[in-house]
Simulated assay, not measured.
Amino acid sequence: MNSVIGPFDTNLIAQEAGIAALKDEEFLKFIVEKNDEGRKYYYKEFDRLGLNYIESQANFVMVDTGKDDMDVFNKLLRKVLL
């Protein structure tokens, strides 16, 4: 069963919690602000490390690590699954 389930799939309880969170405008405002702070932190650190990146309005940032993407993906995936 685990071979067909992705590592980041969400269960029904998590989906219901997500729907409730989207209806909470104060929580949404808080999360948007935290997301913005996090992106700014990453930009600062990427600049410090000399890494190229694409600025984003989402909850992720595309960064060029200078390494093979599948190698980076697999190493990060192993960290998540441990």
Rank of each mutant, 00 (worst) to 15 (best):
M1S: 14
M1F: 11
M1T: 13
N2T: 08
N2E: 06
S3W: 03
S3A: 10
S3C: 04
V4Y: 06
I5S: 07
G6H: 02
G6T: 02
P7N: 01
P7V: 00
F8Q: 01
D9C: 03
T10V: 08
T10S: 06
T10E: 06
N11F: 00
L12W: 01
L12H: 04
I13Q: 13
I13R: 10
I13V: 12
I13K: 13
A14F: 01
A14G: 00
A14S: 09
Q15K: 06
Q15L: 01
Q15W: 00
E16P: 00
A17L: 03
A17C: 02
A17V: 01
A17P: 00
A17E: 04
A20C: 00
A20M: 02
A21Q: 02
A21L: 04
L22H: 02
L22P: 00
K23V: 00
D24F: 00
D24Q: 00
D24V: 01
D24I: 01
D24C: 01
E25F: 02
F27I: 07
F27Q: 10
F27K: 13
L28E: 07
L28R: 11
L28W: 05
K29F: 13
K29E: 15
K29N: 12
K29Y: 09
F30K: 15
F30E: 15
F30I: 11
I31K: 08
I31Q: 11
I31M: 12
V32R: 12
V32W: 08
V32L: 07
K34S: 09
N35T: 13
D36T: 15
D36S: 12
E37S: 03
G38E: 09
R39W: 12
R39M: 12
Y42E: 04
Y42H: 10
Y42R: 11
Y43E: 09
Y43P: 04
Y43Q: 07
K44H: 10
E45D: 00
E45M: 09
E45G: 01
E45V: 11
F46N: 07
F46R: 02
F46D: 05
F46W: 10
F46T: 04
D47A: 03
D47L: 05
D47G: 05
D47V: 05
R48L: 10
L49K: 15
G50P: 03
G50M: 12
L51F: 14
N52M: 15
Y53M: 07
I54P: 04
E55Q: 14
E55H: 10
S56V: 14
Q57V: 14
N59D: 13
N59S: 09
F60Q: 06
F60Y: 14
V61G: 04
M62V: 15
M62W: 14
V63C: 06
V63M: 05
D64Y: 15
D64I: 14
T65Q: 05
T65A: 07
T65S: 14
K67V: 13
D68F: 02
D68C: 03
D68R: 04
D69S: 15
D69G: 14
M70N: 15
M70D: 14
D71K: 14
D71L: 13
D71Q: 11
D71P: 01
V72R: 01
F73R: 12
F73G: 03
F73C: 08
F73A: 14
K75I: 07
K75C: 07
L76S: 06
L76Y: 06
L76K: 06
L77V: 05
L77I: 04
L77F: 07
R78K: 13
R78N: 11
K79S: 13
K79P: 01
V80R: 11
L81A: 08
L81I: 07
L82M: 04
